Amino acid sequence: MAKLVLLHKSDSIYDDELDVVYDFPRNYLKALREAEGDWIVYYEPVKSGPRGYFAVAKIQKIIPKPNVEGRYLALIEKGSYLPFDSEVPRLFNGRPLESSLAEPDGTARRGGAVQLAVRRLPEDEFARIVNLGLPADLESIENARYEPNAKKFDDEVAAFDRPVIERLTRRPYRDVAFRRKVRDAYDFRCAISGLQLRNGGGRPEVQAAHIRPVERGGSDAVRNGLALSGTIHWMFDRGLISVADDCETVLVSRNKVPVDVIDRLLRPDGKLWKPSDERNWPSPVNLKWHRENVFGQVIDNEEISWN
């Protein structure tokens, strides 16, 4: 196995869905075959955008791309994709984070490996990039974000010295990372009500909801998330509300939700409030899954009172 850096451009001609599949040509097949079952870091080159290293994922399997000669697909292991809390630039203190991109004196190399869309990444460099993008103490950072004097987590929860891979597969850590990215993408505003509520201490009341739950094949990509208030999150998870195939009209199970409740909870235009960055807009595929598998379904005999 081998860890890699995979380049992705926002205007790529390849059919990438980074939390699901990475599309690549034959000349990178050997390297990607070596990475089956191992982790990769996604990188956006400077000329394409400002993100640098921006996410991590695990390759499950490599397959030929159906009906396309000379192209292949790296299938991403379900639940492995995780965006960095902070994007990591290619240069750190003026020097490349990848040794293959550095001259013997440590300065940045031009051309050569810099142009490769797939680069092998030594274990120590993988760990360094991930640690910069996803700090080991992210849970503690979030815990103290709105309460600077908050008590630190106890040792059982904190375990800030966890190895990188163990941290990347630990659900509580991933939940915190997902929540931070989704709420930030939506500017701490509920996507359905449009409200930006905060409590007296400044803590935002909005939550991060998975459109397609991780346990049902969803990912921790921001595009699989919606920032929702607590009540609307509860309604979304129970299929009382969803989003239409135009990816912006809010659907309501009107035989289960009273009109006065709808009037209080939805934006006046009945449309979804979206992030400013289109790359974070909810995935049409995941919204379709929610409509077909959650919206309007029976709610496990749960009694609902709207009083």
Rank of each mutant, 00 (worst) to 15 (best):
L4I: 00
H8D: 13
S10W: 10
D11S: 14
D11K: 14
D15H: 13
D16Q: 04
L18W: 03
V20L: 08
V21E: 05
Y22F: 07
D23A: 01
P25H: 02
L29W: 03
K30A: 12
A31R: 12
R33E: 15
E36P: 02
D38C: 04
Y43I: 02
P45F: 00
K47W: 10
P50H: 05
R51F: 02
Y53K: 01
A55V: 07
A57M: 06
A57L: 05
Q60A: 14
K61A: 13
K61E: 15
P64Y: 05
N67V: 13
R71W: 11
A74M: 03
K78D: 11
G79H: 08
F84V: 11
S86E: 15
P89G: 11
N93M: 13
R95N: 00
R95D: 02
P96K: 11
L97E: 10
E98A: 09
S99T: 14
E103T: 14
D105M: 10
D105C: 09
A108L: 14
R109L: 15
G111D: 05
G112T: 02
A113R: 09
Q115L: 12
L116Q: 08
L116T: 00
R119C: 01
R120M: 11
D124M: 09
F126S: 08
R128V: 08
N131C: 09
L134H: 08
L138K: 07
E139W: 08
E139Q: 15
I141N: 05
E142N: 09
E142A: 15
A144V: 07
A150T: 04
K151M: 10
K151H: 06
A159I: 07
F160N: 10
D161N: 11
R162I: 05
R162T: 09
P163F: 07
I165V: 14
I165Q: 07
I165D: 02
E166G: 14
R167S: 12
T169P: 00
R174I: 02
R180P: 00
K181Y: 00
V182D: 02
D184S: 14
D184Y: 07
A185Q: 03
Y186M: 00
Y186T: 00
D187M: 04
I192G: 01
L197A: 13
G201I: 12
G202H: 06
G202M: 08
R212G: 05
D220L: 06
A221P: 04
A221R: 09
N224H: 05
N224G: 05
G225E: 01
A227H: 10
A227W: 08
L228F: 06
S229V: 01
H233D: 15
S242P: 06
D246Y: 12
C247S: 15
C247G: 07
S253Y: 10
S253C: 14
N255C: 08
D263I: 04
D269P: 07
G270T: 10
K271G: 05
L272T: 02
W273D: 01
E278W: 02
S283Q: 02
P284I: 04
H290K: 05
E292K: 12
F295S: 11
G296K: 08
V298I: 10
I299P: 00
D300G: 09
N301T: 12
N301D: 15
N301S: 15
E303Y: 03
S305Q: 08
